[in-house]
Design a protein around this nucleic acid. Structure first.
Lengths: 109, 109
DNA sequence: TAAGAATATGTCAAATTCGACATATGCGCA
DNA sequence: TGCGCATATGTCGAATTTGACATATTCTTA
């Protein structure tokens, strides 16, 4: 795994105890995190495009600002369920959600 | 909402108390269910293609046959997290997961 | 049709994720 | 600099999802 990706993950709330521990991520775990971060990014885009604050969105989905913040940083404590339900609440279609997952900035799939 | 879709949802484990209650599904709820059923379908495809039983898959993902069955029928008690982690465990890529969500058999998005 | 294998359904205590709250950090701008 | 607003982080009891188990149903195939 590349250092750049590690940085991305760390910056996104994934606590990495040690380099060794980090490198023990299986492909499956890495794919899961990547998928989650793609959705997180799409959520932030959708929200800011609509000029809503995290608090605004939180009210819409009966949640809290802190949970929205965690969603957008891909915090391990948030589920894909909540992320996807939030995207739907913002009017993002299933098609666009699928595209957000498919659109990987990385080189390989 | 069309009767055909209602049938599909009922056949997939979504208990519908009454027609009236059913019709109160918001677009958002309908989209969520559709997305989940798309993943459920893809999971069953991936598993059967690999000639695994539900029990086989359950062992791989440290779960149980009954939960795999619920995943494949789109049972309300299973999260998108579990569904997606199971797909990844079968070697399905993020790209293919995105496509499974995007590939809607329905007319509109 | 009978028997066995695979899948589906219902329930429950344990584990995880939730919203809420407090509080910290960042980010303009007067 | 200091103030106001937006976002991030840590924690907690409540709510939801979990694997496991029992059991029912469906599918094969002999």
């Amino acid at each position: 795994m590349k250092a750049a990706k590690r940085k991305q993950l760390e910056a996104s709330g994934w606590k990495v105890g040690s380099a060794a521990e980090f490198l023990e991520l299986t492909d499956e775990e890495a794919a899961y995190i990547e998928l989650k971060l793609n959705l997180a990014k799409r959520l932030k885009e959708a929200r800011t495009k609509r000029r809503l604050t995290q608090k605004d969105l939180a009210v819409r989905i009966d949640s809290s600002q802190s949970r929205v913040a965690k969603m957008e940083t891909g915090d391990p404590s948030v589920s894909l369920d909540l992320l996807i339900k939030s995207l739907l609440a913002l009017g993002v279609s299933n098609n666009d959600i699928g595209k957000a997952i498919t659109n990987n900035n990385s080189k390989a799939a």
